[in-house]
Amino acid sequence: MLKAAGLDVTEERAYRLLVRSPGAHAAELAAELSVPVDSAHAALRSLHAKGLARPLDEDRFAPVAPDIAIGPVLLREQEGLDQARQAVDQLTGEYLSHARRHDPGQVVEVLPSRSALRQQLRLLQDNARHEVVYFCRAGHVAMPSEENAEEPAALRRGVRYRVIYERALLEQPGMPASLAHGIGLGEQARAVPELPVRMAIADGELGVLPLVQHVNAGAEPTAALVRRGSLLDALTALFESQWERATPLAITESGEVATSGCPLDSDSLSLLSLLVAGVPDKSIATQLQVSHRTVQRRITQLMEQAGARTRTQLAWHAARENWL
């Protein structure tokens, strides 16, 4: 366990014995370790040289406190590992940058079977750090929504999910309950009449989508694993354009999924009406009797809820969805 601190097995055992029995003789250590006395002497001298033990006399040593003796060594090791990781990340970026120019397989990898597609969808979500976006069409190619155990786990660890559902999918048996569960955990869900493709993208860095949208019964689907590049940027832009047009979904008091005519509470509606009317933030804060910072924070939350990047987009979305 202390290999990272530069100790071999015999040295670690000797140090542990010293911690339990400070001042033990080399002969006592040899008996405890089941090694020759010369080996025990060598281990103690090595511990002394590494700053983990101090001599009391010719045959006896006392341990140096672990946090003093080992802590700085491990800190240096950690710093070295961090620097190595940064170097690996930089080299990986350079490698992919050059490799993608000469080998399209570095950008797009073909997944030849349903099992490969399922595995990649699971890995994509397990490794997501910030956000997963989905196009969910009616029917399923890899796995039904209720079998996607990775999404609840990712939501619980703070990964944001934005999912657009095809309306026909919402009518399939068991789908409303599955969707309500996801929304209850924090999924942001919207619906459109029809989606052009199925796909999932994690962190804007990795995407998965079937290459054939309609697979005959018994046939294996073929999918593409798309890494960061212009193609993935185009797929991300496609998602964002559909997200802006999609209708938000919410859970009713009875636990059913329904289109949300206006998901805002009265306070948010008051703020939004003042914002759309062109009232400055400071004046809004005065009228609502809250701080300027609170107004800015709530406007940011409204923009996130509407999927808007600017206040103009927020106003446009509010008008389109009849929030005001």
Rank of each mutant, 00 (worst) to 15 (best):
G105P: 06
P63C: 06
S113H: 06
A99M: 07
Q78P: 02
V64F: 06
D126H: 08
Q90V: 13
Y95V: 12
L124C: 03
A69E: 04
S113Y: 02
Y95P: 05
R114P: 04
V64N: 02
Y95C: 04
L81P: 00
E77N: 03
Q78A: 15
P72A: 09
F61M: 05
D89M: 11
L124W: 00
G71D: 03
Q86C: 05
L111F: 14
A99K: 07
I68D: 10
P104L: 01
D59Y: 06
D82A: 15
H102Q: 13
D59L: 06
V110D: 09
G71H: 08
A69Q: 01
R100N: 08
A62N: 03
V64C: 10
V88G: 08
Q83P: 02
R122Q: 11
R114H: 10
G80I: 07
Q125E: 09
G71S: 10
L121Y: 04
S97I: 04
V107Y: 00
V88H: 12
P104W: 03
L75H: 13
Y95N: 15
L75Q: 15
D89N: 14
I68E: 08
Q120M: 15
P63G: 09
R60T: 03
A116N: 06
H102K: 13
R100C: 08
S113F: 07
L121H: 08
A116E: 10
E94K: 14
E94W: 02
A116C: 00
A62Q: 01
A65S: 08
P112N: 03
P66L: 03
L111Q: 12
P104F: 00
V64Q: 03
Q86S: 08
D126K: 01
Q120K: 13
Q83C: 07
A84S: 12
Q119I: 02
R85Q: 06
L111G: 08
G105N: 10
R100E: 10
I70C: 01
E79R: 14
D57W: 06
Q78I: 13
R76N: 12
R114E: 09
H98D: 08
A62H: 04
P112E: 11
A69G: 06
A116F: 03
E109D: 11
L75E: 14
D126T: 10
L121T: 11
D57E: 04
F61V: 05
V88K: 11
A69H: 01
R60H: 01
D82R: 13
E58S: 07
E58R: 15
I70R: 04
P66Q: 04
A62P: 05
R118Q: 13
F61L: 12
T92P: 13
Q119W: 11
Q90W: 08
R114K: 14
R85C: 12
A87N: 15
F61A: 05
D103T: 00
D82M: 11
L75F: 08
P72F: 07
E58Y: 07
L123H: 11
L123S: 09
P104Q: 09
A84R: 15
A69K: 04
Q90I: 03
R118E: 12
L117Y: 09
Q86I: 06
G93D: 07
L74P: 10
L74I: 07
L123K: 10
D103S: 12
Q78V: 10
R85D: 14
N127T: 15
P104N: 04
Q106M: 02
R118M: 09
R85V: 13
R118C: 14
